[in-house]
Design a protein around this nucleic acid. Structure first.
Lengths: 214, 214, 214, 214
DNA sequence: CATGAATGAGCATTCATTCAT
DNA sequence: TATGAATGAATGCTCATTCAT
């Protein structure tokens, strides 16, 4: 039997992750058994243990992905060098909620529906799993830093209010995404078109109405 | 030991719920066993079954509370008749994140930390539990309706932008709360002071800077 | 509270037994809980323990009745002094399978359907419960003795073959009843009319066929 | 420890069945726990669930065997083509009560004592378990049909009374076996030798043959 | 005496994990 | 390497029995 090449190993690992994601999305982290995952991946019950130390490690892998990938569109935008407005950021941020798939670090397409359903479950894990929380916090800060940088670039370019504290602004954007994400997966409120305007209108000064809008 | 008065029954039920909430907050829904709950409540393993049909029913009771109580400050504000601005709503909405306790329907004080940790876990349940989702959706719509009403009153009073679609504005407010809630319990980002301003600033037209702020 | 008179005590005990018999007949000995019996009898869970030491004692009471009452018609016939033929005995024996009710020692009417269903379950208990087996064996021997006596009287009167060993003949009669009893309750084969003739025909010498029959 | 060959699987399944039969025979269906069975079989608590969906399925397997095997000697006789008399049938039928073991469909020797004790318990199950009853009824009818066929062959050969209705005669034979079976396991009345004669004598016309009958 | 709430041991079943093949 | 049978601890739940009121 030929040594398992690193590539084949990685491929198989990814297959197990993808199978686990399907199971988790469908049945939940805790209602999914290791045999379930193995069966979904088309491997034996024991095989998964050659790629992961245990169920927790699979959850962690999924959770890391789920937490981070949700922000992948906005991260890409933020990683650029062009001047972006807040509206651009919010729009990019909510974009993931309407997409069919996103692409993970290894280049695999991940169905957004699965991703989001896993993301919400991930949040529960963060409460009790120190490793997961540390990992997620790192991702959170990384995304926040990226958004903050973009906001700073926007301020320099004059398309973002100079009074905005970038780190805090980034938190708002991320919070909004999480909130709408939850509304979508838990309640089926998939429509996020126009929310950028809604948000702006919401906070608008009522006295000086529409002259500057849109 | 016959004749449990309805009041005593309710008290005991509430004790079990409170114990379950402590366990769930500490260990998670699925890592908490019925014996754990019973022990925390100081009752025998079988006793809980006189008050709840099973573990799911306890989870449901907690989840219902958790989902709804998070909005209790804003619901109270919205239920009033005074004209409130968006800033008032957002402030009230985020208030729960800094409070120590909130009061549930039966008048019991519920520690906010526990409440929020249960709330996040509730979200995971919504994905797979039809009863919980239906229940939560009802709560969601009720809160949304209340906030929308308050926004309409604000529009009539001239303190909310007339262009705002109230139902959509309410979704934004609720989404923000959920997003910040997650940031607090998952990452320890408890500080929400000033976020009202941040949000406003975030969306501000950069061209007309500081004249209207703070 | 007035002392419970022995009569009232006996009445209540009988009510519990009757309730237990209904439960046992419907759900089986082991699928019936003490609360079930109490509820069926309209008393509290604890009350039954004033009349019976525990569930086993109730089963024993039912079992004793069930085992014995099945033979009550044949016992009555055997207890008489008239000369009875084997056909009379078999007929009387199977009679209980077509009756609606039989009357127990205390004069209560007991539905035969319930009685038979409990009787079959009783047999299982005999295998493991020494007290029940001893009790039943005593009843068995008593009935067998009665039938044997009747057979002896029949032999004296010339209506029973003199070569028959009465004790063994009685076993055959009793075995037949048990066999047909099982066929009725387990398979719904309620028809036992004419089986007397069948039995006779079955064992008839085929060489001297039909000249005298029917 | 991969790849359980179908034969080994069947062997192990049979071992569990045999262990369960020992437990059931000793302690009863409902007093035997799954761990009891597993321990008796020398396997772990969970292992049994790879071979049976649950306890009920084990009971059903035992019950099916127990109900059917009791008739195996008479079925073999009836399955033949030779002309058999009623006496032959009854003798064969009761034979099982004196045997040490019988051989099941898979060729395993089953101790008769265990078999009979399980058979009696099976009868209780028939009252409440529709699947078991349907299964047993099928077996019952099959055996009855076999015996009836043998009786018809006997009639053709002139060794069975032509007036006998074979289906009814078969019921009598089966009823007798069940009755004597119960007497053996419940009361230790193991002796069935000569009962064939007893039965015949029992129904024999006493001194003055047929002139007085009916 | 009766009540019925409480107890707590016991049970069927599941499942993460191991390891012989 | 991969397999999948086996393990055995853990869990949710039931129920016979007790006893404070």
């Amino acid at each position: 039997m030929p040594r398992l090449t690193p590539e084949r190993r990685e491929t198989k690992r990814a297959e197990i992750v993808a199978a686990a994601r399907r199971c988790f999305s469908r049945d939940g982290f805790h209602q999914t058994s290791m045999p379930d995952i193995a069966a979904e991946a088309g491997v034996s019950a024991g095989a998964a243990y050659r790629y992961f130390a245990g169920k927790d490690e699979i959850i962690l892998a999924i959770a890391g992905d789920a937490f981070r990938l949700v922000f992948s569109p906005i991260e890409q935008l933020a990683a650029g060098t062009s001047a972006v407005s807040v509206a651009d950021l919010v729009t990019a941020s909510l974009e993931v909620l309407s997409a069919e798939t996103v692409t993970d670090a290894a280049g695999h397409e991940v169905p957004v529906e699965e991703l989001l359903r896993c993301a919400v479950q991930t949040w529960s894990e963060l409460l009790r799993n120190d490793a997961a929380r540390a990992h997620a916090l790192e991702g959170f800060e990384s995304v926040r830093g990226g958004i903050a940088s973009a906001l700073r670039r926007g301020q320099e370019a004059g398309v973002v209010a100079p009074a905005l504290e970038p780190e805090r602004g980034a938190r708002v954007v991320m919070g909004l995404l999480h909130g709408f994400l939850l509304q979508r997966v838990a309640f089926g409120l998939t429509d996020t078109t126009g929310f950028n305007d809604d948000i702006r209108t919401l906070l608008e000064d009522p006295g000086e109405p529409d002259t500057t809008r849109r």
